[in-house]
């Protein structure tokens, strides 16, 4: 599975990249929303391997997760996006789901649980 993780916590990104690579996943990372959008654009423009799923934080400096999600869905409506955040807030969760997020998950999350959800999201939107 080719996944893109978007989070401003670089330690978290590095950890995820390592742990998911051990489980056979190809994970790219972006430290903010704009970089993530640029990376998606690049795959569309240059025909690289498309991302099958995005896992993204909500609270990020600059463009927040919800705005990034909105723009992602404009470009690629079928791309499954999971919001993964340390911020448990019902309003934000509903806004994110309303914008088309597949699910809203909370940190800390067990890697196995996250994997199951990612696989489910990819299957459900395939």
């Amino acid at each position: 599975m080719h996944a893109l993780f978007v989070d401003d916590e670089t330690e978290f990104l590095e950890l995820m990249q390592k742990r998911l690579a051990r489980r056979g996943m190809d994970v790219a990372v972006a430290p903010n929303g704009q970089t993530a959008l640029d990376m998606l654009d690049a795959t569309l423009r240059e025909g690289g391997e498309p991302f099958q799923i995005v896992v993204m934080d909500v609270r990020m400096p600059g463009m927040d997760g919800l705005e990034t999600l909105r723009r992602m869905k404009e470009k690629m409506p079928k791309l499954p996006v999971i919001l993964l955040t340390g911020h448990a807030c019902m309003d934000v969760a509903v806004q994110g789901l309303d914008l088309g997020a597949y699910d809203y998950m909370l940190k800390p999350v067990a890697i196995s649980e996250l994997l199951v959800k990612m696989e489910e999201a990819v299957r459900a939107t395939a």
Binding site: A88, C89, M90, A93, L97, D103, Y104, L106
Partner: peptide, 20 residues
């Protein structure tokens, strides 16, 4: 309270998806 917030958010997210 972190638990109360989290479990409420989990339930609300899931039910929103069901309605959708």
């Amino acid at each position: 309270m972190a638990y109360v917030q989290a479990v409420s958010t989990r339930a609300v997210s899931a039910v929103f998806r069901m309605v959708r």
